[in-house]
């Protein structure tokens, strides 16, 4: 199958967990980071291969959530999946990720998502306990530990999400012409 399939995915999380720097090295973009602070979203793209299917991911990096502003869920419309990103060294960001997940569920329903726990290189300052993550995993959450600094787990997190997306939303003609 030669036709590229496009998918929209979103990156959600607290302000300052490193969403933008997490993907910066792995995506292709033409817009500057100031779009995030002005429009509240920056779009990049990433080509990825799932099986023999080329997928073009349109990565919507939404402005981080903090005490004053919430993620604009209208940007989630039409997304095939999303990343919930939190900071392993900052327990509060997992709480925020959970509340964002709740709002995303209301806005776009049950679509694939991956919880990304960033800053895996900073083990000594780790605040999120393993049992907590295990509990989420047992509830069906997909979890990936990453490091924006080393690049560890970043490619995998995209593959993880997109495989889930393709499983849930197969192409209408999976057999194709071949």
């Amino acid at each position: 199958m030669s036709q590229v399939v496009q998918k929209k995915i979103c990156m959600l999380g607290s302000f300052g967990v490193g969403k933008t720097s997490l993907v910066a090295r792995f995506v292709q973009g033409i817009f500057s980071a100031k779009y995030l602070s002005t429009v509240g979203v920056k779009i990049d793209k990433k080509e990825i291969k799932v099986g023999d299917q080329d997928v073009l991911l349109m990565v919507w990096d939404l402005a981080g959530e903090d005490s004053r502003s919430q993620v604009q869920t209208s940007y989630l419309r039409g997304a095939s999946g999303y990343f919930l990103i939190c900071d392993g060294t900052w327990a509060e960001t997992l709480v925020t990720a959970k509340s964002i997940h709740k709002r995303a569920l209301e806005a776009v329903g049950d679509i694939p998502f991956v919880l990304v726990v960033n800053k895996s290189d900073l083990w000594d300052k780790w605040q999120i306990s393993a049992p907590e993550l295990e509990k989420l995993e047992s509830e069906g959450w997909k979890i990936k530990l990453t490091s924006a600094k080393s690049g560890e787990g970043v490619e995998e997190m995209f593959t993880m999400l997109i495989e889930e997306v393709m499983r849930q939303q197969p192409l209408s003609n999976p057999a194709g012409e071949f």
Binding site: V41, K45, M58, S74
Partner: peptide, 17 residues
């Protein structure tokens, strides 16, 4: 980068709305 422009165009629509 038609894909990116399209996406941003939509985002701006949402933003303005």
């Amino acid at each position: 980068e038609a894909e990116l422009v399209s996406g941003m165009l939509t985002a701006i629509q949402d933003f303005v709305r």
